[in-house]
């Protein structure tokens, strides 16, 4: 079944918007999510393809309603539970 990430040739998305002088990250936590993912892949907790797969498995409405790094963090959270590193309740402060 095709997934929501697979958008090549699809109609209906909003106009392309350029952000002048865009920073590398918009928020500090985004940089943390980026670094966290790299650290977990390097440690072999999961691989890059599992990480992409975990994003693609997000419910479509959540996927489209999330920012780029919100998707990343959701995928990391999913994989930490699936790999047995954490229980779902462990991930909430």
């Amino acid at each position: 079944m095709s997934r929501i990430n697979d958008v090549g040739g699809m109609a209906g998305f909003p106009a392309i918007v350029e952000e002048p002088d865009e920073p590398r990250f918009h928020e500090d936590w985004e940089a943390h999510v980026f670094a966290l993912n790299g650290a977990l892949i390097k440690r072999g907790v999961y691989n890059l393809d599992e990480f992409r797969d975990a994003q693609e498995r997000l419910p479509v409405a959540q996927f489209l309603g999330s920012s780029y790094y919100e998707r990343w963090f959701a995928a990391i959270s999913t994989l930490l539970v699936e790999k047995g590193v954490a229980a779902p309740g462990d991930l909430e402060p």
């Binding site: 936590w29 966290l36 977990l40 440690r43 963090f73 590193v85 991930l91």
Partner: peptide, 19 residues
């Protein structure tokens, strides 16, 4: 909210020896 969650997960992984 998400910032707090990210910090929390980082601390959790540190405590479990994964960071």
């Amino acid at each position: 909210l998400i910032s707090a969650r990210v910090r929390h997960v980082e601390a959790l992984l540190e405590s479990r020896g994964l960071l």
